[in-house]
């Protein structure tokens, strides 16, 4: 038997602190250092080789230049639409796909599969399907007598069309999260409510909706953060166009980077970071507090 000291030593080193090291080094150097550096470089005019301190000029630009302001507004609109639709459609699909419906496995698969497909591929496919005159969507609408809109070439519509495609691709994720939440609700509750004379609609609003709250919190948080950061789908479909009508902060960051305005591009990163912190932290706090009260 080992003596107490060496046993204490052994127990401590069962969980060696250096296990953190490889992850900490990679994460620290490649994620944390640039994040902190961005706070400084966003205040400069920067060419990668030299940087000139210019104070808050880049940030003023973000709130003054019309196309940058529009990008800011678009980002919030895009995140709100996509996360809102994913919550509503995800919950409805989950209720449908946990009921005794025919071909349930097939339905779950087709709803979820787009989540795994390349975003750029989806973007290109829908750009073709949404072509104003030749695209399959408008051709189909014409058959039933509707004059289809110019999905991606109408400046006041482009952002919403991209948001719809984002929902198409991401609703499967919301659905499987809700399904996991719904199957965890005990069947007895529905049984008891039914015996007490509850209609299916009442059961949905008084049992399903409140008890699927943890899933709702996950879906909203995930899709809201994802929506604020969206880049690849917008880039594949509209490149922020027509004009700047579907630009988001992430696409502005890329455009400014390509144009060589590294300071402004980095300021975009900081703006996006602050926006996420300002919107998501209160949102999660609110959602979690409400949950505690129930």
């Amino acid at each position: 038997m080992a003596n107490p000291t060496s046993r204490a030593y052994a127990r401590r080193s069962t969980y060696p602190g250096w296990f953190f090291l490889p992850a900490a080094i990679i994460y620290g150097v490649l994620f944390l250092v640039p994040t902190f550096a961005s706070l400084y470089f966003s205040l400069t005019r920067w060419s990668l080789f030299s940087s000139e301190f210019i104070g808050l000029t880049n940030f003023y630009q973000f709130f003054e230049e019309p196309f940058l302001v529009q990008g800011l507004v678009n980002t919030v609109i895009f995140a709100m639409i996509t996360s809102g639709l994913k919550v509503v459609l995800g919950l409805l699909l989950a209720v449908l796909l946990t009921s005794r419906i025919a071909l349930r496995g097939y339905l779950r698969s087709v709803v979820f599969f787009p989540v795994l497909v390349s975003t750029v591929g989806v973007g290109i496919t829908f750009t073709v399907l949404m072509h104003p005159t030749q695209g399959a969507i408008n051709v189909a609408l014409e058959l039933v007598g509707i004059d289809g809109p110019h999905w991606l070439t109408n400046p006041s519509l482009a952002l919403y069309s991209v948001a719809l495609v984002d929902v198409w691709k991401g609703v499967g994720l919301a659905t499987v999260i809700y399904i996991a939440g719904l199957v965890a609700i005990p069947k007895d509750y529905y049984e008891a409510a039914r015996i007490d004379g509850s209609t299916p609609t009442q059961s949905f609003f008084y049992i399903t909706l409140p008890l699927s709250r943890p899933a709702t919190v996950t879906v909203i948080t995930l899709s809201f953060i994802g929506g604020l950061k969206t880049f690849d789908l917008i880039w594949a479909m509209t490149r922020g166009g027509p004009g700047f009508s579907s630009d988001t902060i992430a696409s502005i960051i890329y455009k400014q980077y390509q144009a060589g305005f590294y300071g402004l591009s980095t300021a975009g990163n900081v703006v996006l970071f602050v926006l996420i912190a300002l919107l998501v932290v209160p949102l999660t706090m609110y959602l979690n507090r409400r949950e505690g009260h129930e």
Partner: peptide, 8 residues
Amino acid sequence: MIPPAIVP
């Protein structure tokens, strides 16, 4: 949560 700071 934090978006990576690209140019830095």
